[in-house]
Design a protein around this nucleic acid. Structure first.
Lengths: 150, 150
DNA sequence: ATCATTGCAAAAGCTTTGCATAAGA
DNA sequence: TCTTATGCAAAGCTTTTGCAATGAT
C-alpha cells in the first residue's frame, strides 16, 4: 500500500516528539489537494474559504516542519515572499520559466546527475540536492519580451 | 582597451536618460572592489566605514539598476534578505554550497548549455539564462552534517 | 531653470514571537 | 497532569515610498 503524505507527516511528528494537531493536518491536506505552487497567503485564504480556521502563525510555524520532513520545498522567493511546492510523491524536477509571462514548465534532466557526479569527483563534496531554474521566453512570448529587452 | 564596470554603468545611465551621481558611482566602485557576495547591509556598512555617505535608500534604489544593466545579479535569498554578486567581467558560473558550513564553490559546467539546447528543442523556449545551485557536504563536513540529517 | 536623485523618516510587507488559552499525550 | 500548540496582537526585519532639499544637465 502506498504511503500517503499524512503518514509521512505523522511519522515525522512522532519521531520528533511533537504533537499531531488538526491544524497541522489540515495544512498538509490542503497543500496536497492543491496541485500548483502556493504561498502562505494563498494557503491561508483557501483554508479560510472552506471555514477551516487555521491562523497564519500556525501556517508559518508548520511549513518549516514540512520542509524538514521532505513533503514540500521552497521554490523561489519572488514578489516579496516565498513560494512553495509539495514534492512528496513527485520525481525531482527543475523549472523553466518564461521571463515575460511567467509561464512555468517542470522538466527532468538526467544530465544533472552527470553534473552532480562531476562535482563530487572534482571537489570532493557529497551531493545532496540541486535546484536549477532556467529562464527564457516561451513560444507565445518570443519577440515580445526579447525585443523589449525584458 | 578593456571596458570597465563604470563605463558600462555610465552608458546604461545615459541610454536610459538617468543621471550620473556620485552616490551611484560610489556604490558601483565598492561592489567591484569587493570580491565576494554581498548584501545591502554589508555594502552600507563598508561605505560608512570609509566615510562614503550613501543612504540605504539610495542603495536599494541603485541595485535594481545594476541588475538591469548586467553588472550584478541576485544570488539567493537567505537569512531574510537578498545576497548579490557582481558578474560583469566574470564568466557565467554556478554555485556548490555546503549544507553544513555554508562554504561556497563557484564552478562552470558546459553540460548546462547542453541542457539549455535540449529545453529549447523540447519546449520551444528561447533560453536566456539559468541559475543552478547544488547542495552537498564539503570534504570537511562529511559525516558531521550527513549523520545529523542536516 | 528643470527635473531626477538624495536622505530621512514613515510606511508597507512578510515573518517571527510573547503570552494567555486550549488541547494533545 | 504536564507540556506543546494555537491564535492574537505586537514586534522585528527588510524593503519601499513620500517629501523637502539638493544637485545634475
Amino acid at each position: 500500500m502506498k504511503t500517503t503524505e499524512l503518514q509521512v507527516f505523522r511519522d515525522y511528528i512522532r519521531r520528533r516528539g511533537l504533537r499531531q494537531t488538526p491544524e497541522r493536518e489540515t495544512i498538509v491536506r490542503e497543500i496536497f489537494r492543491l496541485h500548483e505552487h502556493f504561498d502562505v497567503d494563498e494557503l491561508y485564504l483557501r483554508l479560510a474559504q472552506q471555514d477551516l480556521k487555521v491562523s497564519k502563525a500556525s501556517i508559518y510555524r508548520t511549513l518549516p516542519l514540512l520542509v524538514d520532513c521532505g513533503l514540500i520545498r521552497e521554490v523561489e522567493y519572488t514578489d516579496g515572499h516565498w513560494h512553495y511546492e509539495h514534492i512528496y510523491g513527485h520525481p525531482h524536477h527543475c523549472h523553466l520559466r518564461c521571463a515575460a509571462c511567467g509561464r512555468l514548465v517542470e522538466f527532468q534532466e538526467p544530465l544533472l546527475f552527470e553534473i552532480e557526479k562531476n562535482l563530487q569527483e572534482k571537489y570532493g563534496y557529497t551531493i545532496k540536492d540541486h535546484v536549477l531554474t532556467v529562464l527564457g521566453y516561451c513560444p507565445q512570448c518570443q519577440g515580445v519580451g526579447e525585443a523589449a529587452g525584458d
